[in-house]
Every structure is written in C-alpha cells, then in structure tokens.
Design a protein around this nucleic acid. Structure first.
Lengths: 171, 171
DNA sequence: CTGCAATATAGGACTTGTCATATAAGATAA
DNA sequence: TTATCTTATATGACAAGTCCTATATTGCAG
C-alpha cells in the first residue's frame, strides 16, 4: 500500500502525468521503492476512482493526463505518513543461499560473497555520488531526502562489513 | 523463486511434511524469509508436479505427507545456490514516509523515528539472544547459519545508527 | 521526408504472496 | 466424555507487482 502514498506525495509537490511520475520516482526513490510503469498507471486509475486524485486531460492537444492530489488525497497521505506501522519484514534470497551454502562448499560460498561485494561496492559508489551532490544543509524536506539516501548508504556499508566478516569466517 | 529453493534446502537435510517445514522455517529463516503456510503447501505441490520432490503418503496411518528432495531436486537446488544473481532491490515503506516527512513536520518525523528505534532495539535483542545460543565454532553449515543471523544483526545495528543520526539532523 | 527515439498511456497474462476459512484426526485436560 | 489444542493439509479470493505488448504522438537527425 506504499506506492499509492508515494504517488500522492509526488503529486502533492506538483501535478504530473504518469510518465513524469515514473521519471521522478526513478530518479529519487528507486533505491528504496522501485516502481513499475504499468503499476504506476494502474494505481493512478485506482486513486482517481477513489477521488484521491483528479485528472486534467489533454495538456494543449497532447495525449497526456496530468494528475493532481485532491484535498481528500492530501488528507489520506498525511494520515498515512503519521501512522506508525510495524517494521516490514525483509526477504533476502542471498541469505537463503548462505543458509544452505555448505552444499556448495567454501569455494562456492566465497564466489557468491565476492560477487556480492562487487555489487555492493558499486552501489556504495553510486549512493556516495548522489549524496555528494546534495547540499548538507537546507530545509526539512531536503534534509529528510538526504537522510533516505544516507539510510541506503549505511545499509550498504553494513553489508560490505558483513561480507568481509563472513569471508574471514570462511578460512 | 526463493521459497522453492528454501524448501528444497530443508528437504535436502531431511524429509519432512509441509507442517514440519513451516515450523523449521519459522524457527530459522523467518527473519530473512518469512513463509506463509498456504504458500508452502502450494509450492510443495508445484515442486512435486515438476518431479523435484517426491511424496511418501501416510506415515503410519496418519494423514501426513512426507516430502523428500529427488535427485533432480537436489541438482536444481545446487544449480540455484551456485548462480550469482543481481542484488534484489529492497522496498522500504518507512523511507517513503521519511521522503515526504516535511508534510508532517519535525515532530511528526521524530515520532516515527522513535517508534522505529523501539522496534529495531527489540529486534536487536532478539537476534543477539539467538546469536548467543549458537556456538561460535562448528562446521561450515553451522558457521554459515550463524552468518545469516549476523547479517540481520549488522543491518539492525546500521538501522539504529542511522535513526540516531537522523534524529540529530532534526534539531 | 523518413525513420528513429522519446513521450505517453494502457491492458493481458502471470507470479508470488497474504488472509481467511474449511476440514479432519489425534492428544490432553477438565 | 466433552471440549479444546495441536497436528496436518488444502482451497478460494484477493493484492501487489512484473513482463510483455500494443498504440499513438511528437520532435529530431540524417
């Protein structure tokens, strides 16, 4: 039920088409909420049917549907934002491989860990790059957006630390 | 596609009923792969249909279906274990709330962070408890199972660190 | 002016997982 | 003995998301 609210959040900033939404989400929240194009459009339709979003058709003769959050939509967004929810449980296929790793022996496991470290380090570089481009000061919104990036960063760092720990454990 | 392999992994250790499977998974991999009962039974059916699992009906007149991994099942498991897969992308509803946190102001955001820290600290205590009960040495299998726990631990620690960082940022 | 990339929306088929509920047998405690 | 708990399996309805494909327009480069 988060995509609905992510969409409402973006539309609260400014009205947009589904296409714009996809671009914006891809550029800013993809690392903690990857959004599928088809899913965005379908959610937009549902939101419209519920009266949480209104649509202004045809932006100067182009086939383009600009969506805005209605007052009801903003209220629903803020309610959701304020609601404390239990921590969602994560699914980590990689840990399943580790759990049964004895079947492929220490060398097999080491291969998996090394490959994962490469990916984690790429992610680290990417996130650090983006983080560096955000000014450390600013208003609440900007500082919180920076914080979501930092969260990704901290977790990737933890992942690399754990990989190194586990590699040592393997010897 | 991980539940199938988790199931094969458990059946490779010893033949089990769906019921046992659920119990075992709940006790060992739940923190990185929570498994739904209905899903376990349906996956077992699919696995059986594909010949990756065989079933021995009626264990002494009880209505109980004991499943074993077939040679094909073990081969499929090991193939999967050895396959390097791209890092799965995570979904973090909480970060969406942070991203749009300016709508509920610093106090609203602080409430969310504090509530989350409570949950994270409970998780930390739980994982530490389990980790303490596992001997630090042992064979590869045991050390890897311990490592999956350590992974959870490292990430929860990182989460708490980030929460504290972000709370400071709020002032 | 033609072909190609980008803009823009949408639906079908499918997968994975969730939640609720049904069913039935054996074990145990009041 | 009756009620209840645990063991044990299964299905229906649904939600969320993925992947693929279709369609149409606009703008730009060759």
């Amino acid at each position: 039920m988060s995509l609905r609210h992510a969409i409402l959040g973006f539309l609260a900033i400014k009205p947009m088409s589904g296409y714009d939404l996809r671009k914006h989400m891809d550029a800013s929240v993809r690392h903690f909420w990857p959004a599928d194009q088809a899913q965005i459009y379908r959610t937009l339709q549902a939101l419209e049917a519920e009266g949480l979003v209104s649509v202004e058709d045809t932006d100067n003769s182009r086939q383009r549907r600009v969506h805005s959050a209605t007052p009801a939509g903003l209220a629903a967004l803020d309610d959701w934002l304020r609601t404390v929810q239990p921590v969602e449980d994560s699914r980590e296929p990689f840990l399943i491989k580790m759990f049964f790793g004895d079947r492929i022996g220490p060398d097999g496991v080491r291969d998996l860990l090394l490959a994962r470290r490469v990916e984690a380090e790429e992610m680290l570089a990417t996130l650090r790059g983006i983080a560096a481009s955000i000014p450390p000061k600013g208003d609440l919104g900007l500082r919180l957006r920076r914080a979501t990036l930092l969260s990704g960063l901290r977790h990737v760092e933890a992942e690399i630390q754990w990989i190194n720990e586990t590699l040592q454990e393997l010897d």
